[in-house]
Amino acid sequence: MLLVLWQAAAGTGLLPERLLPAPTTIASTGLDLIRDGTLPDAISVSVRRAAVGFLLGAAAGVGLAVLAGLSRLGEHAVDPLMQMLRALPLFGLIPLFILWFGIGETPKVALVALGVAFPLYLNTFSGIRGVDGRLAEVADVLRLGRWGLVRHIVLPGALPQALVGLRQSLGIAWLALIVAEQINASSGLGFMINNAREFLRTDVVVLGLVVYAALGLLTDALVRLLERRALTWRKGFPV
């Protein structure tokens, strides 16, 4: 519907090509860029950055949350630090990261990792702390032991909240990547967009945005699928 209106507006000249090209123009640009390999290359570079950053950030976020969640000592060591770091503006760190890591892949991956780590940490930590203490007593009378308690009660109990964190962190991962790629890049989707801007290729810019959005929707759909599979035990969750 929106697409049809958009197409009509562009076709009648109501919407100048320079501001926003017609959907058909963007689609054909997309096909061209796929054919000459520009778009697939850019996507694969950006996806790799997002994936590496995400994995590092997720490992750190979940790992620290488990550490802080399972022991008072861990909590005292980890939580104050995380709460302090959380107050830092993520994108304000970009100049610092460039100073530290140069302008290669590292600052981009680091920014994504940092953005991912916090929502996962906060949600997983509160998920662990929110596990019903009465179930911990069950583990006790069933003689599950410490590891059994963690494996059968604490971690599965924290999972729903951790998955909320996962969805938030994926949103932030794409956002962080887009911002980082705008600042400095010689490859990837951000580079493609920046490059196109210099040549006034609005169609390529819009195409890049559409691809970002599609990637975001795709990962969100993956998490939903994961939720559906992992949380079937919840009442009202369709199997």
């Binding site: 009465r134 599950l144 599965p156 035990w233």
Partner: peptide
Amino acid sequence: RLVPWKRVRANVTLG
């Protein structure tokens, strides 16, 4: 106090 994310049989065999 059944563990909600384990099926009934798994609750019985727990530990």
